[in-house]
Amino acid sequence: MISPPPTTHRTEAAAVLDLLTVPQVMARLQLGRSAVYDLLRTGQLASITLGCAHRIPTHALTDFIRTRLDQEAA
């Protein structure tokens, strides 16, 4: 008998699956490609690399925006 796969919470599954491409981040931040790659290169925006493609978790984009808002408010 095969047991069902373990269940995960929706938030855990969403965090794993919600990856953005560079063009998607460009659109959300309304920045150019070079600016987004500069953020990735300098570590200001976290990403994972799959082969030669960068993927940005949505939580990393949210963290980046919150950090920038906090810096500007200070």
Rank of each mutant, 00 (worst) to 15 (best):
Met1Ile: 07
Ile2Ala: 08
Ile2Leu: 07
Ile2Met: 06
Ile2Gly: 02
Ser3Glu: 06
Ser3Leu: 08
Pro4Met: 05
Pro4Ile: 02
Pro4Val: 00
Pro4Lys: 04
Pro5Lys: 03
Pro5Asp: 02
Pro5Asn: 04
Thr7Glu: 13
Thr8Glu: 15
Thr8Ile: 13
His9Asp: 14
His9Asn: 10
His9Lys: 12
His9Leu: 14
Arg10Met: 11
Thr11Leu: 14
Thr11Asn: 12
Glu12Trp: 07
Glu12Tyr: 05
Glu12Ser: 11
Ala13Glu: 15
Ala15Asp: 14
Val16Glu: 15
Val16Ala: 14
Leu17Asp: 15
Leu17Met: 13
Leu17Ile: 08
Leu17Gly: 09
Asp18Leu: 06
Leu19Phe: 09
Leu19Met: 14
Leu20Ser: 01
Leu20Ala: 05
Thr21Leu: 09
Val22Pro: 09
Val22Leu: 03
Gln24Thr: 13
Val25Thr: 12
Val25Ile: 04
Val25Arg: 01
Val25Met: 03
Val25Asp: 00
Val25Lys: 02
Val25Gln: 00
Met26Thr: 02
Met26Lys: 14
Met26Asp: 01
Met26Leu: 03
Met26Pro: 05
Met26Gly: 00
Met26Cys: 15
Ala27His: 13
Ala27Ser: 13
Ala27Pro: 00
Ala27Leu: 11
Ala27Tyr: 02
Arg28Tyr: 06
Leu29Cys: 07
Leu29Phe: 11
Gln30Phe: 04
Gln30Asn: 15
Gln30Tyr: 03
Leu31Glu: 05
Leu31Asn: 03
Leu31Arg: 15
Leu31Trp: 12
Gly32Arg: 07
Arg33Ile: 05
Arg33Thr: 07
Arg33Ala: 05
Ser34Gln: 14
Ala35Met: 08
Val36Lys: 05
Tyr37Gly: 01
Tyr37Asn: 10
Asp38Phe: 01
Leu40Met: 09
Arg41Ser: 08
Thr42Lys: 09
Gly43Glu: 09
Gly43Ser: 08
Gly43Pro: 13
Gly43His: 10
Gly43Arg: 09
Gly43Cys: 10
Gln44Phe: 04
Gln44Trp: 11
Leu45Gln: 01
Leu45Val: 03
Leu45Ala: 00
Ala46Tyr: 01
Ser47Leu: 00
Ser47Thr: 04
Ile48Val: 15
Ile48Asn: 08
Ile48Trp: 05
Thr49Gln: 15
Thr49Ile: 10
Leu50Tyr: 11
Leu50Thr: 15
Leu50Phe: 10
Gly51Gln: 10
Gly51Tyr: 09
Cys52Met: 11
Cys52Asp: 13
Cys52Phe: 12
Cys52Val: 13
Ala53Ile: 09
His54Leu: 02
His54Glu: 09
His54Asp: 04
Arg55Ala: 06
Arg55Trp: 10
Pro57Tyr: 11
Thr58His: 08
Thr58Leu: 08
His59Ile: 10
His59Glu: 12
His59Trp: 13
Ala60Met: 08
Ala60Ser: 15
Asp63Asn: 12
Phe64Trp: 12
Phe64Val: 01
Phe64Asn: 00
Phe64Lys: 00
Ile65Gln: 14
Ile65Asn: 08
Arg66Cys: 08
Thr67Gly: 00
Thr67Val: 04
Leu69Tyr: 09
Leu69Met: 14
Asp70Phe: 03
Asp70Trp: 00
Asp70Tyr: 01
Gln71Tyr: 07
Gln71Asn: 13
Gln71Cys: 02
Gln71Ile: 03
Glu72Asn: 11
Ala73Tyr: 11
Ala74Gly: 07
Ala74Gln: 12
